[in-house]
Design a binder for these strands. Sequence first.
DNA 1: CCCGGAACCTGAAGGC
DNA 2: TGCCTTCAGGTTCCGG
Length: 270
Amino acid sequence: MPELPEVETIKNALKPHLTGRTITGVRVFDTRPVQSVHVDEFCCRLIGRKILGLDRRGKYLMIQLSGGENLVIHLRMTGALLWNPVEAEPFTRMEFFVDNGGRMVYTDVRRFGTMYIVQDTKDILGKLGTEPLNAQFTPQYLTQLLKSRETPVKSVLLNQELIAGIGNMYADEALFHAKIHPLRPACSLTQAEITTLHKSIRHVLNKGISKLGASIRNYRHPDGGQGSAHKEFAVAHRENEPCPICKTPVERIVVGQRGTYFCPKCQAAK
DNA sequence: CCCGGAACCTGAAGGC
DNA sequence: TGCCTTCAGGTTCCGG
């Protein structure tokens, strides 16, 4: 499941391959990912464009093109972007060719991923909340988000219109790190807890990036390898394994329809 | 406005 | 062994 650290890793890996190249061809095996415009227009607006740069916003990858165009990609749960894969990749939905013979392959088992071609990225990204690793994400900002809401604190962390980029795995890890029960009403957190949670969010995201992402299910690095962030997860996807702090077995509950892992002792409900 | 639940998809895993 | 059901979760949409 690509979340912020995984998309950041993909962006960083593709950047040297793609920047400065010109798109020479697009092959579409499945039109489902192509949003908003007909697939013919999608291809027309890509071919011949020069790639000026790559960026990330929340879980979206943005590829800036000449002519003011932007290719915006969301991988959802099982999407992957691979650079020059050696083998034929199963579930290949699209291929992008560039002028040095390189090829970016888009695979997606479940076909939830989406692609857009837009002049103004705000059309797609306009409703996203703040970037949790940017300076504007302060403890004060987090306090404002939490204080008026009764919903579980985990649901706030997952709301992309409030904070952009945190998904199920890193939400669980951040709450564990901050010793906060995922079902706590957002407005019940103390100022001290919010300050800690703010630090924890940044800590787990930065660690995820430094480990090149977490390969829990389908996520792969563009070179075909896997990230290693999941090896250091304390609770996410570790039901019944001992908590790294107190050895109590990690529990799994459902919060906002998502599987949620936590330590019942370290993150005791108040 | 706020919140919860269904839908979208399909391979993997578990039950019988 | 094999069929059937359930599960996984990012986002959007709908209803209360």
